[in-house]
Each structure stands twice: as structure tokens, then as C-alpha cells.
Simulated assay, not measured.
Amino acid sequence: MPRLDVREISPVNRHEKIHEEFEGMDPGETLTIVNDHEPKPLYYEMAAEVPTFDEEAYEVRQDAPDEFVAEFPKSEE
């Protein structure tokens, strides 16, 4: 399962890098993102723009005050 810690990536470049990683995945895989805030804007962006994003299976948890772990699954269709 691909995992990407974006906390070290400049905020202006984060979404581009995430989209690149997601596009490179096989159907049925899940991209795990580690971020310093809850990635709600990214969730809405993916839901609106990426047909292969399985928004129903999306999950997020907060492991620390500055550590949010989000699961972005790619549909098998």
C-alpha cells in the first residue's frame, strides 16, 4: 500500500504530488497520506475531479495533534 508523508512537502506542491501518486496506483490499492491537518479540501477535490477515487471507502484518523492519516482508495472499476 503506497504511503506518502506530505508534511515535508511544501503546501503548494502537496496536491500535485498526491495526484501523481494516486494516478500511478493500480485499481484496488489505497494511498495513505500523512498530513499535519485533516485533508478535507483534498477529499473534496478528489471526489469532484478523480472518478477512480472511492470516496465511500475514504477514512481519516488523527494520531497526534499534527498527524492525520488519511486513506484514499482507488476503485477497482
Rank of each mutant, 00 (worst) to 15 (best):
T30C: 07
M25C: 08
H15Y: 09
S75M: 10
Y44H: 15
S75F: 03
I9H: 02
Y58M: 12
E77V: 11
L31I: 02
P39Q: 09
E8G: 12
T30D: 05
A57E: 15
T52P: 02
E8W: 06
F22D: 00
P73Y: 01
P73I: 04
E71W: 15
P11V: 11
F22C: 00
F22H: 01
P41Q: 02
M25H: 09
E20F: 11
V50A: 05
E59G: 07
P2M: 12
F53P: 00
P11F: 09
M1P: 05
R7I: 04
P11W: 05
D5P: 05
K17G: 03
E45Y: 15
Y58Q: 03
I33S: 01
E71L: 14
L31M: 04
V6C: 09
R3I: 13
A47N: 07
E45V: 08
Y44P: 00
F68T: 11
R14P: 03
E23C: 08
E29M: 13
R14E: 08
R61N: 09
I9R: 01
R7G: 07
D5T: 08
E23M: 11
F68A: 06
V12M: 06
E77C: 05
V60A: 11
D5Y: 09
P27L: 08
N13K: 14
P2D: 08
F22R: 00
F72M: 09
P11A: 12
L42Q: 02
P39I: 08
K17Q: 12
P2N: 10
E29H: 11
G24E: 10
R7N: 03
L4D: 03
F53Q: 01
N13A: 14
Y44I: 07
F72Y: 05
T30P: 04
P51T: 14
F68G: 06
I18W: 00
P41Y: 06
E8K: 13
